[in-house]
């Protein structure tokens, strides 16, 4: 194609303006982009898995060879490992966007702010869930746990828990990643709002390993579900306002 032909085609291009994708389509596109980036390097995934395993083992070193205590608190260590790893994953997911100002590019594209939130939060959920899927068998082996309830229940608890962590975490990471002292700020802001999530997830996971004689599983899952509704709702409403001001 000669330069002259390109110029001749130019008006045709402007008349056929691409249709702006809706919220759902936009989310899917952004999510594909994030996951593709992740898959191409796999750096974050590897770092996350090793960090998680390290944390999990550190707990057992810190407590010594007290098998009883380790087994009793295993689900707490499991969720703490996920929580600590989530801070890495979350701040990384916004650091990527800051290189070359790609978040500005996304907003000028123009991508819907809600779609950016959804894509980031779903992407982090997938990562954390994957991390959980690696850590769960490991902790069952290391801490010598017996699975009393079905593994599907465990997978479901992990999904709901990582959804709640990612929704609140994406929201706070977007703020903290742009402030000074961001490495300190994200855990300070994020951990307090995640306390109820941690409590509910740990209680529910403990029941998977130790049985549920009092039939409390449902109430803890309800709490996790309602926290999810609150965090995703608040994130969807507030996130567009935050990235306007980045």
């Amino acid at each position: 194609m000669t330069p002259a032909e390109t110029v001749a085609q130019a008006p045709a291009v402007t008349t056929a303006r691409p249709v702006r994708p809706g919220l759902f389509a936009c989310t899917v596109i952004l999510l594909r982009k994030d996951l593709l980036l992740e898959w191409r390097t796999r750096a974050r995934l590897n770092a996350l898995v090793f960090f998680g395993i390290c944390t999990l083992l550190m707990f057992s070193f810190a407590l010594g060879a007290n098998a009883m205590a380790l087994r009793e608190h295993a689900s707490g260590y499991f969720w703490l490992a996920i929580l600590f790893a989530s801070v890495l994953s979350l701040s990384e997911s916004f650091r990527v966007e800051q290189e070359n100002h790609s978040l500005d590019g996304l907003r000028l594209a123009p991508a819907n702010g809600r779609a950016i939130f959804l894509a980031k939060a779903i992407g982090n959920t997938v990562l954390l869930w994957g991390l959980g899927a690696v850590l769960a068998p490991l902790s069952i082996a290391v801490f010598d746990l017996r699975v009393v309830m079905s593994l599907f229940t465990l997978a479901f608890i992990m999904l709901v828990g990582s959804m709640a962590i990612s929704a609140a975490g994406t929201f706070y990471a977007s703020i903290a990643s742009n402030a000074r002292a961001r490495d300190v700020l994200l855990p300070i802001l994020l951990f307090p709002v995640l306390v109820p999530v941690l409590i509910a997830a740990v209680k529910a996971t403990t029941m998977v390993f130790e049985g549920d004689p009092m039939n409390q599983m449902e109430s803890w899952l309800t709490l996790l579900g309602s926290l999810n509704v609150i965090y995703w709702g608040l994130g969807l409403v507030l996130f567009p306002r935050i990235i306007e001001d980045l």
């Binding site: 703020i175 307090p192 507030l238 306007e244 001001d245």
Partner: peptide
Amino acid sequence: AGYLALRRFTDNPDTRATWSAALGTFG
């Protein structure tokens, strides 16, 4: 305390106001 720390760490008044308002609403 984190909320106040964020306000300290942000210099632009516009940004600071929006972010801390989001934090306060979430909180």
